[in-house]
Amino acid sequence: MSEELAGMVAIVTGGASGIGRGIVERFLAEGAKVMIGDVQDELGSSVADAGGDDALFCHTDVGDQAQVCALVGAAVERFGGLHVMVNNAGRSSPLKKGLFDEDFAEFDSVMRTNVLGVMAGTRDAARHMAQHGGGSIINISSIGGILAGGGVATYRASKAAVIQFSKSAAIELAHYGVRVNCLAPGNIPTPILRSSATEEDREKLDRFEARIRQTMRDDRPLKREGTADDVAEAALYFATDRSRYVTGTVLPVDGGTVAGKVMAPRTPR
């Protein structure tokens, strides 16, 4: 590793597993000190323990603004500053058979985690960064917030909201040297897909997940599987000075899925 983040402090919400854990591990490897915020205490503590003195876990429900504020304060107190904020924590909405069967019972909790958590994290991080030379805020959306599709309607709406909010925040915070960008992962195997299954689906989970994953593969131009490391690499770019003139952008990390339909391969001439 090149130690690109040496001397920097980062917060990663939802850092106990999946994409968040991949970002935490990459940032630590690049020399950052990382505060991990998550509701999964055992997993979060394990990730922090593996990071040694450069990592700390703080139980954080990002849907609670007071806890988000406390997370930012804890990072500044423990490590002496804050340079990078990754608002990654998120959850899916239940996968229903169709819109007619949707009761939106999970609407408030999904929006509170996926949207309010990002908004509060951006605000609280920016308050510190604006007074200390700027910084980078990285909000994790999804290709589900870019591409329309059936199912998980609340999740898609929440991730679209993250994109619009991030662009608006980027405009407002640019004056203070605070950059705000979005990553939109797609087709990355993480536990969030499993959480979208209903109780009925969980009984047939293997077939359910295999079917969804195959559909994702069929829609993806690049045929290799994406990983949390791929998203972490993109997050590293936004965290470093390499992206010093980049703000208000949305970067899909999806093997080309949002670019367009897959074409049949042709033999080069």
Rank of each mutant, 00 (worst) to 15 (best):
E3G: 10
E4V: 12
L5R: 08
V9L: 08
V9K: 04
I11G: 10
G14T: 04
A16H: 08
G18L: 11
I19G: 02
A29H: 05
G31R: 09
A32K: 07
S45P: 02
S45G: 11
A50M: 07
G63C: 11
G63A: 10
G63Q: 04
D64T: 15
L71M: 07
V72C: 10
V72G: 03
A74T: 08
V76W: 02
G81R: 00
R91L: 13
S92W: 04
K96Y: 01
F100H: 09
E102F: 13
D103C: 12
D108R: 07
V110S: 05
V110C: 09
T113I: 15
T113Y: 02
A120W: 07
R123I: 13
A125C: 06
M129P: 12
M129N: 06
Q131R: 09
G133Q: 05
G135M: 06
G135F: 07
I137Y: 01
I138K: 06
S141Q: 06
S142F: 03
I146V: 10
G149D: 05
G151K: 01
K159R: 12
I163E: 02
Q164K: 11
S168E: 01
A170R: 08
Y176P: 03
V180C: 12
C182T: 15
L183Q: 06
P185K: 00
D201C: 11
D206Q: 15
E209M: 15
E209V: 15
Y237H: 10
R244G: 07
D254G: 09
G256A: 05
P265Y: 00
T267A: 11
P268C: 07
